[in-house]
Computed example of a mutant assay.
Amino acid sequence: MAKAERILPADFTCVLYEVRDHVAIVTINRPERRNALNRRAYDEVEAAFRAASADPDVRCVVVTGADPAFCSGEDVKEMMTGEQRDKSVARLTAVRPEPTPAAVAALECDRPVIAAVNGAAVGWGMELTLFADIRIASEQARFGEIFIKRGLISDVGGLWRLPAIVGPAKAAELLFTGDVIDASEALRIGLVSEVVPHEKLMESALALAGRIAVNAPLALRYMKDGLRRTSYGDLREIGSWVSATLGRLFETEDHREGVRSFLEKRAPEFKGR
C-alpha cells in the first residue's frame, strides 16, 4: 500500500472526508468494527489531517465517527496479532522510532480541531479526542485510556495532552486504572466542554466550527500555535519515547496476555514479565 502521505481523500475506504463552509469533516467509517483502526484506517486518518492542513479553504476541522461509536481504538485482531504486529514492532524498535504518524498529523494540523464524540472513544479513539483542541460529547459518549489492560502505555495523547486538560492526578487515575467514564463524568473533570443530546451533536459541533471559521485564518493558525507552545511541550521528543517504550512492551508476556484475554472475552491475568 502507498505511504499515507500519498493517499488522497478520493481514495479513502475507511474515512469519509468533506469540506463544507470552510470546515473539513473527518468521519471514521468502519461502523461494523465500531470504527476500530486497522493499518489502512490509521493511514487515512493521517492523510485526512494532512489534506486539511494543506487546503487553504479549510479553517477548522471536525472529527467524528460513524454511529454507534467514535473510535474503539485499534482493531486488536488485525493490529496486535500476526504479520501486522511484527511490522509494528519493527517500526517501534528502530534506533530512534518516530511517533505514530496519524498522531503527528492530527497534532501538527494548524487548523483548530473539534472532536464530536458520538459514542465510545477508547484506547487510540480517546487519544484522537485528546489531539483535538475542543471536545463536544454526545450523551452516549464514553472515554477510556484502556492501554494498561493490554499491557501497554498510551500514545502521546494520554501522556502529553491529558494531564494538561484534566490535571496530573486525574490523568494518572485514568491511565493507571484503564477505567471507562461516561459523558457526564468527562464534563465534570473538564475533558469535554459540552454534552449535548446525541441527535444534536453534529449540529452543535458544526455551529461551533462555523463560529471559529468566520475569523481571520492566519490569526487562527498562530493562535493555535501559541496555545500549543504554552500548554504542552515537545511532541516529537515524548512521541519518540512512547514509540520506543511500546516497542519493548509489545515483546512482553503481559501484552500477549492482554491481547489473548481480549480476544477470548475474559479478564487478563498479568505476571509482570
Rank of each mutant, 00 (worst) to 15 (best):
A52E: 06
K265Q: 15
A171D: 04
S138Y: 14
R266H: 09
S231G: 09
E145G: 12
T245S: 11
P68S: 06
A183G: 03
L107C: 13
T64C: 07
D43T: 10
H255L: 05
V180A: 00
G151R: 03
P268I: 11
V89Q: 02
A213P: 08
T245N: 05
D55S: 02
A137F: 09
A2M: 13
R188L: 01
V19L: 05
A171T: 08
A164G: 13
S184L: 00
R248M: 15
A24R: 07
R33G: 11
A90F: 07
P163S: 09
S154L: 12
F70I: 15
A207K: 12
R33A: 07
N118Y: 15
D133F: 09
A141I: 01
T64G: 05
I114Q: 12
S243C: 05
D254V: 02
R59Y: 04
D254H: 07
R273C: 14
A48I: 09
R188C: 11
E32W: 04
E5Q: 06
P101R: 05
S72M: 14
V62E: 07
A116L: 09
L37I: 09
S240W: 08
G190T: 10
S154Q: 13
T93C: 01
A94L: 12
V192I: 05
E251H: 11
G73F: 15
M202D: 10
A90L: 08
R260Y: 02
T177I: 01
I7Y: 08
V196M: 06
D57P: 04
E18N: 06
P268N: 10
T129Y: 04
N29G: 02
H255C: 04
L92Q: 02
T100W: 10
L246E: 08
D155R: 01
L159K: 09
E253L: 14
A207D: 15
A102G: 10
N215Q: 11
E257P: 09
I212V: 14
R221W: 11
S53N: 05
L220D: 13
L107P: 09
D234K: 00
E83Q: 01
P168G: 03
G272K: 12
R161D: 13
V63W: 03
E74G: 14
